[in-house]
Simulated scan of single mutants.
Amino acid sequence: MRPPEGNAADQFQPLRPGLVRLAYRMLGSIAEAEDVVQEAYIRWHQTDRNMIREPGAFLSKTVTRLCLDILKSARVKRETYIGPWLPEPVLETGDEEDKGEDLSLTLMMALERLSPLERAAFLLHDVFGLGFDEIAATLDRDPAACRQLAARARKNVRAERPRYPIDRREGERMTDAFFAASRSGDLSALRNLLAENVVSYTDGGGIRNAALNPLFGFRRVSGLFMGVARKNEGRLPPLLYKGLINGLPGFVTLEADGVVQTTALDIEDGRIVGIYIVRNPEKLRHLVALAN
C-alpha cells in the first residue's frame, strides 16, 4: 500500500537541506539548486515509496542526475558568459550541518573546471561520503570508473584547498582593514594587506560594470580600488553583513546604485591573495532582504 502523502513530506523534509547543499555544489546557483530539489520532491511524491529502502540514497541519485542534465546546457551558457563567472555567494548561517564541510569559493571555482561526471563523483564521495557502488548506480558507470573520476577530480582540486585555515579573528581584522582601505583609497594600507601576486575577480554578468578579465598583481588590483574610491569620493558604502562568504572572510555592501554586492577574501600567510566580488544582481536576489 502506498504511504500517505503526509508521510512523503515527513520523510523528505529532513533530507532537503543536504540535497540543496549537494545541488548547490554541483551547480553553483542557489536558485537552480532549490529548483532541482523541488523537482526531486515532486518525483518523490510520484514514486512507489514502498520500493525505496534508502530514501536518502534515492533522492541523492535523483538530484545528481537532474544536476547533470542542467550542467550539459550550463557549459554552453558559461562559454558565452560576460566576464569572470563566480558561484552565487552563500553567507554563513550558523547551521551545524555546514560546519566542517568545504564550501570555499576557491574550491567551487575548481569544481567548475571539472567535467560534470568528475564533479559528481568527487562531491558524492569526498564531500558526502557515498561509497563507489552507490555512486556507480547514480552515474551509470562501474565502481572502478567512478573511483578514477573521483581521483582525477581530487588531484585537480587539491591545490585549491587552504593549507592552513585562517583564524576567525584574524580574518575579521583583515576584512575590516580591507573594507576601509579599498573604499577610502588608502594605498599605503592596501600595500600592507595585498600580496604582490594578488588576483581579483569581479562577476557583473554583463549587467553591471565589472572588469571583463581577472586582474593580476598588486599594481592592477590596487589601481582598481583606488579608482573606485575616487569615483565614490572616498565614502564608505553601508555595510550589510560581515562574516564568512563561501567559507572565506568577507562582507556585503549596498552600493551607490542601490544594489547589493559581495566581496570575499582569500588570505594566506597574512596577506590577501584573492578577491572575489559578485555584482551580478541575478546572483544576489537571495541577499536583497539584507538591504531592507
Rank of each mutant, 00 (worst) to 15 (best):
residue 2 R to S: 09
residue 2 R to Q: 13
residue 6 G to I: 10
residue 9 A to Q: 14
residue 10 D to P: 03
residue 10 D to E: 15
residue 11 Q to F: 01
residue 12 F to L: 15
residue 12 F to P: 12
residue 12 F to G: 15
residue 12 F to M: 14
residue 13 Q to C: 05
residue 21 R to A: 14
residue 22 L to A: 07
residue 25 R to E: 10
residue 27 L to P: 11
residue 28 G to V: 11
residue 28 G to R: 10
residue 29 S to T: 03
residue 31 A to E: 12
residue 32 E to W: 10
residue 33 A to Q: 06
residue 35 D to L: 09
residue 41 Y to R: 15
residue 44 W to M: 00
residue 47 T to W: 06
residue 47 T to S: 14
residue 50 N to D: 12
residue 50 N to C: 08
residue 50 N to Y: 02
residue 51 M to S: 14
residue 51 M to H: 03
residue 53 R to C: 09
residue 56 G to H: 04
residue 57 A to T: 15
residue 59 L to V: 07
residue 59 L to C: 01
residue 62 T to S: 03
residue 63 V to E: 10
residue 63 V to F: 07
residue 73 S to W: 04
residue 75 R to M: 09
residue 78 R to D: 11
residue 79 E to L: 09
residue 80 T to G: 08
residue 86 L to S: 12
residue 87 P to H: 05
residue 87 P to Q: 08
residue 90 V to K: 08
residue 90 V to M: 15
residue 93 T to Y: 06
residue 97 E to Y: 14
residue 109 M to C: 07
residue 110 A to E: 04
residue 116 P to Y: 00
residue 122 F to N: 02
residue 136 A to E: 05
residue 141 R to T: 08
residue 142 D to C: 07
residue 142 D to A: 02
residue 142 D to H: 06
residue 145 A to Q: 12
residue 147 R to I: 09
residue 148 Q to H: 07
residue 148 Q to E: 14
residue 149 L to E: 00
residue 153 A to F: 01
residue 153 A to R: 01
residue 156 N to L: 14
residue 158 R to G: 05
residue 168 R to H: 09
residue 174 M to Q: 05
residue 176 D to T: 15
residue 179 F to S: 06
residue 182 S to W: 00
residue 186 D to F: 01
residue 187 L to M: 15
residue 188 S to L: 11
residue 193 L to P: 09
residue 194 L to H: 05
residue 195 A to F: 11
residue 198 V to G: 08
residue 199 V to L: 04
residue 204 G to D: 01
residue 205 G to S: 05
residue 206 G to T: 03
residue 207 I to A: 14
residue 211 A to P: 13
residue 212 L to D: 04
residue 213 N to M: 13
residue 214 P to H: 02
residue 215 L to I: 12
residue 216 F to C: 13
residue 217 G to V: 13
residue 217 G to F: 13
residue 221 V to F: 01
residue 224 L to H: 02
residue 229 A to F: 00
residue 235 R to E: 11
residue 239 L to K: 13
residue 241 Y to H: 03
residue 241 Y to S: 00
residue 242 K to D: 06
residue 243 G to T: 08
residue 245 I to Y: 03
residue 248 L to W: 04
residue 252 V to C: 02
residue 254 L to M: 10
residue 260 V to F: 00
residue 261 Q to D: 03
residue 265 L to R: 06
residue 266 D to T: 09
residue 267 I to W: 03
residue 267 I to Q: 00
residue 271 R to S: 07
residue 271 R to C: 04
residue 274 G to D: 01
residue 285 R to V: 09
residue 287 L to E: 02
residue 290 L to P: 04
residue 291 A to I: 07
residue 292 N to P: 04
